[in-house]
Design a binder for these strands. Structure first.
Lengths: 122, 122
DNA sequence: ACTAATTACCTTGTAATGCAAGGTACCTGG
DNA sequence: CCAGGTACCTTGCATTACAAGGTAATTAGT
C-alpha cells in the first residue's frame, strides 16, 4: 500500500471511528457520572483516561439533554479554586437507563461478533 | 416507576440506542460484504438477522461513500428475477480497513468495560 | 400486447448532533 | 485592580440516518 492510499485510509477510518465514538458517548458519560458526583472538566478527564476524547462543546449540550430527560441532576457547589461547579449525579431513572444501555451494548457486541466470526475466511 | 416515566425513558433510550447503532453501521456493512459478493437488499437482510435494523435510504448513500473511499467496488450482474444488481466486494483497502476497525472496536469495548467495572457499586 | 406487481437502484428534505470557535462570569494571587 | 486560571454555555457548520418519494427493469397475469 503506497503512501497516498495509506493517508486516505487513515482519514476515512478517522471518520468511521469518530462515528463509533459518538454512538457510545452518552452511555459512557452516564457511566462516569454513576461513579459518583462529578462536574464537567472532571468528566472530560475520566473519559480521556478511558481513551475517549471528548471536548467541552460536545459535553455541555449533552449534559443538558441528560438533565432535561431526567437521567441526571445537579447541584451547585462552591469550589476552593475558582467559580462554583455543577456536580452531577444519576437519578433513579438514570440508573435504570444504564442498566438497559448495558444490555443494548452487549447485544450490539453480540451482533458484531457474529458478523466477525462468520468472516474469518478473509 | 410510573407509566409516564417508563414511557419517557423508553423514548430517550431509543434515541441513544439509535446513536449506538449508527456508530457501528459502516463497520457492520463492511463485515457483511467481507463475507462475499452481495447486493443491497441482501445486505439489509443479513443486518436484520444480526439484529441491526437499517433501511434502504441509509444503505445506498453509505455504499456510495464506501465506494468513493475505495473500500468497496461493485460489478453489475444480471438477475434471474428482476433488474440487474450491483454486487459489492471488498477492495484490498477495504480489507485493511476492517482489520483496523476491528482493533478500534475492541479498544472501545475495553474502554467501556473499564468504566462499567469501576461502577459496580451502583 | 397491455397492465400490475415485484425487484432494485437512487435522491430529496428534515432532524439530530458532535465539534470548533468564541463568549461570559467567577475567583485568586500578585 | 488586573491577569490568569477555572468553569459554564452558545453559535454556526458539517455530517449523516431516515422517511418518503421517484425511476427503471423484469416477470406474471389476463
Amino acid at each position: 500500500m503506497d503512501r497516498n492510499t495509506e493517508e486516505n485510509l487513515k482519514n476515512d477510518l478517522e471518520n468511521t471511528k469518530a462515528q463509533m465514538r459518538k454512538g457510545i458517548l452518552e452511555f459512557c458519560i452516564l457511566l462516569v457520572i454513576s461513579k459518583g458526583k462529578t462536574y464537567a472538566p472532571d468528566i472530560l478527564k475520566q473519559l480521556e483516561i478511558a481513551d475517549l476524547i471528548v471536548v467541552e462543546g460536545t459535553l455541555y449540550p449533552l449534559l443538558s439533554r441528560l438533565k432535561n430527560s431526567g437521567l441526571v441532576e445537579y447541584t451547585w457547589t462552591e469550589s476552593k479554586s475558582g467559580p462554583p461547579r455543577k456536580y452531577y449525579t444519576l437519578t433513579t431513572k438514570g440508573k435504570e437507563a444504564i442498566k438497559r444501555l448495558t444490555l443494548t451494548w452487549n447485544k450490539f457486541n453480540k451482533s458484531i461478533n457474529s458478523l466477525i466470526t462468520k468472516t474469518e475466511k478473509i
